[in-house]
Simulated assay, not measured.
Amino acid sequence: MASLLQVTGLTKIYGKRGAATRALDGVDLSLEAGEYVGIMGASGSGKTTLLNCVSTIDKPTSGSILVEGRELTRLKGKELTRFRRERLGFIFQDCNLLDTLTAFENIALSLSIVGTPAGEIRPRVEETAQLLGIGDCLDKYPYQMSGGQQQRCAAARAIVTHPALVLADEPTGALDSKSARMLLERLEVLNRERGTTILMVTHDAFTASCCQRVVFLRDGQIFQELSRGELDRRAFFAQIIRVITQLGGEMEDVL
């Protein structure tokens, strides 16, 4: 079966010659449809650069990025905009909701942009909101919601269009522990019940333990991978901590 995401030989260099920084150095990574994969690494390891290249926010220096068999590095202009809008979903640390719109309107906006028929919008928004546990927040404005509710609204906005791949960059980074747990539970439900494919960057070992697989980056290269398999979350968390310990002081910020 072909991979949903196939990254091959991905390299990203910032600057020129003597001042050049190799943020990614020949990264190979693949995700099957329905996988939930975490990316971890110390600051400067390349994890955010990797996510930015896959999300088309940044352009790699060399290498290949295939999503559903399409080479993202060759897409330009309107074709790239359309692909990003229709096939990719984004969840950032800052939820970026529009303050003048209700939760319903923020979520519905994604459907309007991709041309969803008007009659389909309300049921799809409501179904997605219920899945993320914010069905009772749809008439509220962002300032009337808690931080966790806002982030789950942002997640609903990201997945309501049924994208091929959801990219999450530190989605729990600005949340308290209770709100973070609620968001992570909802993301697991999305992955399990809807088969949503998720690639998530995180610095937090507990957050990473929700994933089916965790890829560790070091100096722009893959250092190690862990698969959860049949392990429960506690056992997988312990494995993640062991790898962090191997990386030593480079990842003190995750402990």
Rank of each mutant, 00 (worst) to 15 (best):
S3F: 09
L4D: 04
L10D: 03
T11H: 10
K12Q: 09
K12N: 01
I13R: 13
R17Q: 10
A20L: 07
L31D: 01
G34L: 01
V37C: 04
G38D: 00
I39A: 07
S43E: 13
G46Y: 02
T48D: 03
T49A: 06
T49V: 07
N52K: 07
C53P: 12
C53Y: 08
S55W: 05
S55C: 00
T56F: 08
I57Y: 02
K59W: 01
S64E: 06
S64Q: 05
L66S: 01
E68K: 11
E71S: 14
K76I: 10
R82T: 15
R82W: 14
F83P: 00
F83G: 00
F83K: 00
R85T: 15
E86Y: 04
R87W: 09
G89F: 05
I91N: 08
F92R: 06
N96Q: 15
D99K: 05
T100E: 15
A103Q: 03
N106G: 04
I107Q: 00
I107E: 00
L111D: 00
S112I: 07
I113D: 03
T116V: 11
I121G: 11
I121P: 04
I121F: 09
I121L: 05
T128L: 11
Q130D: 13
L132K: 04
K140N: 04
M145I: 07
S146R: 07
G148H: 01
R152K: 05
A154G: 09
A155N: 09
A156H: 00
A156K: 00
A158M: 02
T161M: 13
D176F: 14
S177E: 15
M182G: 12
L183H: 10
L183Y: 09
L184W: 03
L190S: 03
L190E: 04
R192V: 06
V214C: 12
V215L: 14
F216T: 11
G220Y: 02
I222F: 07
F223P: 04
S227G: 11
R228H: 06
L231N: 07
L231D: 12
D232L: 12
D232P: 07
R233A: 06
R234F: 09
F236S: 09
I240S: 14
T245D: 15
T245H: 15
G248I: 12
G248F: 03
V254T: 15
V254I: 12
